[in-house]
Design a protein around this nucleic acid. Structure first.
Length: 223
DNA sequence: AAAAGGCTCAACCGCAGGAGC
DNA sequence: CGCTCCTGCGGTTGAGCCTTT
């Protein structure tokens, strides 16, 4: 992803930032929404002093910063539901996401494209329409659990087997970082506190950080 | 140990539809 | 009625990480 300041690419407005969000930007957005509520994203971005488009703010909030966003791997139950709903509605990701509490359309879309679609392509004869994805009892659905990609997904991306048990269905909705390198650090510390301030500064050198930490800061701010 | 290729997912883009004027 | 702005959605991209050779 673009690590550059991105102040002048594509956009006519040189003030508009693009690329990954920083901790500071996230804090600003969280604070502002906590105080004023969400919506009217363009004016929100300006009023909050963020050099981002309203679109970008909305996406960041909906996909990451919202407190009810559920991070971690897709569970088999969710997987099943996604298969069923996709069979019913096709690529209506937002509609599907509404039936998976805490999951975002982006997350489901990515999950489908990287795991399920690939698997179906590999195992189906040419021309098999994805919209007719089989119901849960279908061999395709069952066999995907044995697929290397699925297994990797359900055990996390690390070499540690501890990762999955702490990430999947974590009661506190997981300690999660938007950045893979920080996610890596969570692997080393499965007991990373999900409430309160961690004992270690939860940022890495890239300026990425932990959502729980950020929310705890928000709570401490009392806003 | 290093290189190459594959995989994941955060973030962007373009488009469509709705609301307000 | 037409225009503009905003929101939401689905598709796509590309950086970084992981796995394989």
């Amino acid at each position: 992803m673009d690590k550059k300041p991105c102040s002048n690419n594509n956009s006519l407005d040189p003030e508009v930032r693009k690329g990954p969000w920083t901790m500071e930007e996230d804090l600003i957005l969280i604070n502002y929404i906590a105080n004023h509520g969400e919506g009217v994203w363009n004016s929100l971005a300006k009023a909050a002093g963020l050099k981002r488009t309203g679109k970008s703010c909305r996406l960041r909030w909906l996909n990451y910063l919202r407190p009810d966003v559920r991070r971690g791997n897709i569970t088999p139950e969710e997987h099943l539901l996604i298969m069923e709903l996709h069979a019913k509605w096709g690529n209506r990701w937002s509609k599907i996401a509404k039936h998976l509490p805490g999951r975002t359309d982006n997350e489901i879309k990515n999950f489908w494209r990287t795991r399920i679609q690939k698997h179906i392509k590999q195992s189906d004869p040419p021309g098999f329409p994805l919209q007719h994805a089989p119901p849960s009892h279908d061999p395709h659905h069952v066999s995907i659990h044995d697929h290397p990609h699925y297994q990797r997904a359900t055990t996390g991306t690390s070499s540690s087997g501890h990762f999955s048990s702490c990430m999947v269905d974590h009661p506190m909705q997981d300690a999660y970082s938007p950045h893979p390198s920080f996610q890596q650090s969570l692997v080393m510390d499965p007991g990373f506190p999900s409430v309160g301030i961690p004992s270690v500064e939860p940022t890495n050198e890239s300026g990425y950080w932990n959502m729980e930490y950020l929310w705890s800061m928000q709570l401490l701010n009392g806003d």
